[in-house]
């Protein structure tokens, strides 16, 4: 059962993240470093019209959102974060006509960095992943910016 603060996060999510609202992403649940999300199918999300496949980039956006929600739930929504890197492996094609689901889990929180992993699937079985992903985030990105950012801005 999601905490009340987490429920507020889920409800505020679409308002806070314009792109997620534009593309129709929904937070299904979020609790203690774990987030579940849904990307409803839409025809404009196709990446390969000939084969009838959803664009893999839609899964990048979905896991990136889910990672953000999971990390916020682990840290408290006041702390700002910056994505350092993200890797996605495409295990199966995501087919037209079916929604995408994502699960993101925080694996470790250190003083500076948060490590997360996640997966995307269609249908009932999360083990039949269309994509698996991994990312690391820098904590308190507003207070202590990485050296590269400092130099660049």
């Amino acid at each position: 059962m999601p905490h009340s603060a987490d429920r507020a996060l889920a409800e505020g999510f679409a308002r806070a993240i314009p792109h997620s609202a534009a593309i129709g992403q929904e937070v299904l649940s979020v609790c203690d470093g774990e987030a579940r999300m849904r990307q409803p199918y839409r025809v404009e999300l196709l990446g390969d019209a000939e084969r009838g496949l959803i664009h893999t980039a839609v899964q990048i956006t979905l896991v990136d959102s889910a990672f953000g929600v999971a990390v916020f739930s682990a840290l408290g929504a006041q702390e700002s974060i910056a994505t350092l890197d993200l890797r996605v492996d495409y295990h199966r094609p995501a087919v037209a006509g079916a929604d995408l689901f994502a699960l993101a889990q925080v694996e470790r929180v250190t003083r500076q960095v948060v490590f997360v992993s996640g997966r995307v699937w269609q249908g009932e079985d999360p083990d039949k992943a269309t994509a698996v992903a991994r990312a690391s985030f820098m904590r308190a990105a507003n207070a202590q910016r990485p050296v590269a950012r400092e130099a660049g801005e």
Partner: peptide
């Protein structure tokens, strides 16, 4: 475009949009 924003406070593009743009460019 406004719908590409991921962080309305900064504002900044959604990280997934940046990644999706780059992957699509490669394709």
């Amino acid at each position: 475009a406004e719908p590409l924003v991921g962080n309305a406070r900064l504002p900044a593009l959604h990280g997934g949009v940046v990644g999706g743009f780059m992957e699509t460019a490669a394709i």
